[in-house]
């Protein structure tokens, strides 16, 4: 981790967000909560640390413009969702975001870099609101709960959040830990906080 990364981490933690080294609590650490609904909600709250991280919310924005960096500033140059979430015809995501991160200049990349659909906007929402949203097929892309495990556990664009390249702090924990939390949350009844 270079200076830029460290600085980014500092900024993130100053803003109350997780730094690069922050770990996620394991599903087992919630075993002590006897009430399964409460346990499930607590598990989701932990999961919420990932979902509200700028690596996720920047591209699940409240409006049509993504955000950028650990400071979650509005994306520059100004880009907008467009019909397919890949940008307006004039400035498509893929024009700058290549198939992979390019660390010499700190530019993030992925083969299908794009915005989450508007109904999946998380930016600025509480963990409880995101939970309600994520369990509502009308607002989660028609996904079943098991689909969510696959989305969070396997989707390679989601995977990017834990390997975001130079200058950006990764989402808390690891992808596997996150997947385990999703599974534990579903197994405990998928309750919302």
């Amino acid at each position: 981790m270079g200076l830029a990364g460290l600085l980014a981490g500092t900024l993130a933690s100053r803003g109350g967000r997780d730094g690069p080294s922050s770990a996620l609590a394991s599903p087992e650490s919630f075993a002590g909560i006897a009430d399964s609904r409460a346990r499930s909600a607590a598990t989701f709250t932990e999961l919420g640390r990932v979902l509200t991280h700028p690596r996720c919310t920047n591209c699940h924005p409240a409006g049509d413009r993504p955000r950028q960096g650990d400071e979650a500033r509005p994306h520059q140059p100004p880009v907008f969702r467009g019909a397919d979430g890949h940008g307006l015809p004039a400035l498509r995501c893929a024009r700058c975001h290549g198939p992979a991160n390019f660390d010499p200049v700190g530019l993030p990349g992925h083969p299908v870099w794009h915005l989450a659909p508007a109904e999946m906007a998380w930016e600025g929402r509480s963990v409880a609101a995101i939970c309600a949203q994520i369990t509502d097929p009308a607002r989660n892309g028609g996904r079943s709960l098991q689909d969510l495990v696959a989305h969070i556990g396997d989707d390679s664009l989601v995977v990017w959040a834990w390997a975001p390249g130079r200058g950006r702090s990764p989402a808390p924990g690891t992808q596997k830990q996150t997947e385990a939390l999703v599974e534990a949350w579903i197994a405990s009844g998928a309750a919302c906080p």
């Binding site: 200076l3 500033r73 100004p78």
Partner: peptide
């Protein structure tokens, strides 16, 4: 650590 993006100058919009 400063560059454009963080430093905003007026764009057409």
């Amino acid at each position: 650590q400063w560059n454009l993006g963080r430093y905003l100058v007026a764009r057409g919009s």
